[in-house]
């Protein structure tokens, strides 16, 4: 991940486009679905311009290279004073302590719709629906409390190959309006995979892809990963996806019901990755401090209803925590990550 000002792949600063208000995720999914359909149609229909660095699915179409929009969205003057009830709902659902301090996962909920707005732009080259959330890397550098007025920025960067397609980082930053030039108080990088798309590989890509989270864990032969002794067990009911969807606004159909998830190839509804990561973050508790880095890598989806065994354990050599979640019955890893005080 790259820190600092948003820039294009070529290093040019992105054009900053201001929106009046933060978009809501609900409407964006409708637009995303339409765009996804258009992109899928573009890939599948011979004769139409094909997306994907010159190699069309059908073989020899004229194709534009995959490029990310050269724009960063920005919304200023985002008020938080009237979010008390919403914050409380989030804190209860995620087992966070009920305070007026916005946890890192809540800031993700606030900021991510702006990143989604980038993903549903007409010139965003990958389909929103069907993208796989691979990882998240979040830094919270201080207290954001109810009443703070915020500035949110989001853009896409770092389009790169993945063994099974193309991965891209969606970056979102939150600053306090009172300190517009300071480094962001919250910064989140969400890494997504679009399967079936291609970029030319370089040896450097191959190397970075080796570290990149993919589904190596769940494809690894049985016995290569041994579950530790759990420190907790989450019993996730069938409504878990609907509950987090209501609080986060992320009503992606794969999370809402078995029926809507089946349409996207899942046997049942799956938990939001960020729900599981935020539960793990809450499990760390006060030891995380006021400023922390919080990472997660997703290995396999958590089917709902379901039980997840978790081990949230302090790093023996440092102040941080590591966590891992797995299916206790099958020993299959769902996610893992770290929480490190900054």
């Amino acid at each position: 991940m790259t820190a600092g000002t948003p820039a294009t792949g070529a290093g040019e600063p992105l054009r900053v486009e201001s929106l009046a208000t933060l978009p809501g995720l609900g409407g964006l999914y409708a637009r995303g679905a339409a765009a996804s359909g258009r992109i899928a149609a573009g890939r599948a229909m011979p004769g139409l311009p094909v997306i994907g660095q010159g190699r069309s699915v059908e073989g020899d179409g004229e194709a534009a290279p995959l490029t990310l929009p050269d724009v960063a969205y920005q919304v200023t003057g985002v008020p938080t004073a009237d979010l008390a009830h919403h914050l409380h709902d989030y804190q209860r659902l995620l087992h966070e302590p009920v305070t007026d301090v916005l946890p890192a996962g809540y800031l993700h909920v606030l900021a991510f719709p702006l990143a989604t707005a980038v993903m549903v732009r007409g010139d965003f080259p990958l389909p929103l629906l069907g993208m796989v959330h691979l990882a998240n890397d979040v830094e919270l550098r201080g207290h954001v409390v109810l009443g703070d007025v915020l500035e949110v920025r989001a853009w896409a960067e770092n389009l790169r190959p993945h063994k099974r397609g193309v991965q891209v980082d969606l970056v979102a930053e939150v600053r306090r309006q009172s300190e517009p030039d300071a480094r962001p108080v919250w910064r989140g990088v969400s890494t997504y995979l679009a399967k079936g798309f291609h970029l030319p590989w370089t040896s450097a890509d191959a190397e970075s892809s080796a570290d990149a989270p993919d589904d190596a864990e769940d494809r690894a032969p049985a016995g290569t990963w041994t579950a530790p002794l759990p420190t907790g067990r989450w019993a996730l009911g069938p409504g878990t996806g609907r509950a987090y969807g209501a609080v986060s606004g992320d009503r992606n159909p794969i999370h809402l019901s078995a029926l809507s998830a089946k349409a996207f190839g899942f046997p049942r509804a799956i938990a939001h990755g960020m729900y599981t990561a935020a539960r793990a973050l809450a499990d760390v508790g006060h030891a995380r401090g006021d400023a922390y880095r919080w990472t997660v890598e997703f290995a396999s989806p958590v089917l709902l209803p379901g039980t997840v065994d978790v081990a949230v354990t302090p790093d023996p050599d440092g102040p941080g925590f590591a966590y891992v979640g797995w299916n206790g019955g099958r020993g299959r890893q769902h996610f893992r990550g770290t929480v490190t005080p900054l």
């Binding site: 002794l229 759990p230 420190t231 907790g232 067990r233 989450w234 019993a235």
Partner: peptide
């Protein structure tokens, strides 16, 4: 409440350790 593990499951972990 904080772990979601029953007392028996907790003790099973201690027993294993």
């Amino acid at each position: 409440p904080r772990t979601g593990l029953s007392m028996g499951e907790h003790q099973a972990i201690t027993t294993a350790r």
